[in-house]
Design a binder for these strands. Structure first.
Length: 423
RNA sequence: GGACAGGUGGCCGAGUGGUUGAAGGCACCGGUCUCGAAAACCGGCAUACCGGUGAACCCGGUAUCGAGAGUUCGAAUCUCUCCCUGUCCGCCA
């Protein structure tokens, strides 16, 4: 969320930011916000003037009554003022709620190093490993089914398409990935491990900016105003909602495993086979809270932490800097990590690492008190997947597939899995 | 799910419908004292918004005592609804 002051004092920068994203529909709402803000300030002046008058009268009434005098005339005046105040306050409330909906639906402005334009302007900033030639590699759904690791049909029967049953060594593979990633992040990268609720309230969803704009993408509970999380980012970033941290406590870093739930409402018909796009999946998430001065370097650090997992899994990947128009709503700078899956012949997005600057912190009201004193400031929040399981499993099954149809398990993982080969 | 008891400033904790933004204490900041520190003493110490010249300082105003609505000239204080916390009971992995 942007500060209303952006609209008032830096409207050109705001407009430029929207244009760089290609969010041209936002330009007119910004103008609308500027008008509403002007009206709002005028009305505040009018209403506060009346409130001041009423307060003064009420004091006089009090004085008279204590002296045993009547004050009917003053009470009459005050009542009249009260009616005007009620009317103005009501209009004001309406305008302020319009203003806040506008602010809540404007995306973040991307940082300078993010190129303008859409997906076509994404750029690979580095890569690791060599993608394997895919001519003789089966897609993961065939391997997974053949080896008895994944039961797509029964998943669909129990829940619907896009819900996956892992079984036997496949189930153990999921558990192994969870343990490997959490151990690396808590041990080597010093994150605090958190276990989070996967059901959260509307305020939390609004804090991280899934709401109000993307409500149709969320699974919602029927009888209560609660949602299934699409990522552990939501509970982790809301951990310190409405709190003030000490600068000395920053950066704070958290990691959590969670199940994630996505309706994929806008993606019907895309990636329907296999593990590429599912409604429920597992993921390890990384979240960091930092000062504004350090969030840039902290994004590099966090991205490196996610990359480390891909290296341990011996999976070739590339790091892609997203162009402004492809960057998520709340993010100011995003790197996607893409792992190559030779069986399906695609680079799979297995992690998305973002610096949200103060965009989420302002919504969730997460601040810190500077060491040198002064008013609390908003923290910067960052997060990244470290990593998402289904596409990693797809990549593992395809990239490490052997001539004999079995799958080699990388050393870092076999320790957890208790097997060096899936066959 | 039922029955009680509560929700006040960074924390603890007073508060009779009328200078209560809110006593007192703790914490914190500045000062006196001290070789230095502690103790003691003195002083300061909420936030947001609107306005006053652009920034700073400052000044004026408005709002905020879990949230919202109501009663009243006037609400932390009275009424209603909701949320949360605690205790007990029931149910349950």
């Amino acid at each position: 969320m942007h500060d209303l002051r952006m609209v008032r004092e830096h409207i050109d920068a705001l407009r430029a930011g929207m244009r760089r994203r290609g969010a041209n529909d936002a330009l007119s709402t910004i103008d609308r916000a500027a008008e509403l803000d002007k009206w709002r300030r005028e009305t505040i002046q009018a209403v506060e003037e009346r409130k001041a008058a009423r307060n003064a009268i009420s004091q006089q009434v009090g004085q008279r009554k204590r002296g045993g005098e009547a004050a009917d005339d003053l009470q009459q005046q005050s009542r009249a003022l009260g009616e005007e105040i009620a009317r103005l306050d009501q209009e004001l409330a309406k305008v302020e709620s319009q203003l806040s909906s506008i602010l809540l639906e404007l995306p973040n402005i991307t940082l300078d190093q993010v190129p303008a334009g859409g997906e076509e302007n994404n750029s690979v900033v580095r890569s690791w490993g060599t993608p394997r030639e895919g001519a003789r590699v089966q897609p993961h759904w065939e391997i997974g089914t053949r080896l008895g690791l994944i039961d797509f049909e029964r998943g669909a029967k129990i829940s619907g398409s896009g819900f996956i049953v892992f079984r036997g060594l496949g189930a153990r593979l999921v558990r192994s990935l969870m343990n490997l990633m959490l151990d690396v992040h808590t041990g080597d990268h010093s994150y605090e491990e958190i276990w989070v609720p996967v059901v959260v309230n509307r305020t939390s969803m609004t804090g991280t900016a899934q709401l109000p704009k993307f409500e149709e993408d969320m699974y919602a509970l029927k009888d209560e105003d609660l949602f299934l999380i699409p990522t552990a980012e939501v509970p982790l970033t809301n951990l310190y909602r409405d709190e003030i941290l000490a600068e000395g406590d920053l950066p704070k870093s958290f990691t959590a495993y969670s199940a994630c739930f996505r309706r994929e409402a806008g993606a019907a018909g895309k990636d329907t086979r296999g593990l590429l796009r599912v409604h429920e999946f597992d993921k390890i998430e990384l979240v960091r809270y930092t000062t504004p001065e350090t969030s840039g370097e902290q994004l590099e650090l966090l991205t490196g932490h996610a990359e480390k997992i891909l290296q341990l899994l011996e999976l070739p990947y590339r790091v892609v800097r997203l162009a402004s128009g492809d960057t998520g709503f709340a993010s100011a700078h995003t790197y996607d990590l893409e792992s190559y899956a030779p069986g399906v012949g695609k680079w799979l997005e297995v992690s998305s690492c973002s610096n949200f600057t103060d965009f989420q912190a302002r919504r969730a009201n997460i601040r810190y008190k500077p060491t040198e004193g002064g008013k609390p400031r908003f923290v910067h929040t960052l997060n990244g997947s470290g990593l998402a399981f289904p596409r990693i499993i797809a990549s593992l099954l395809e990239h490490h597939q052997q001539e004999d149809g079995s799958v080699r398990v990388p050393a870092a993982l076999s320790k957890y899995l208790g097997a060096e080969r899936l066959s």
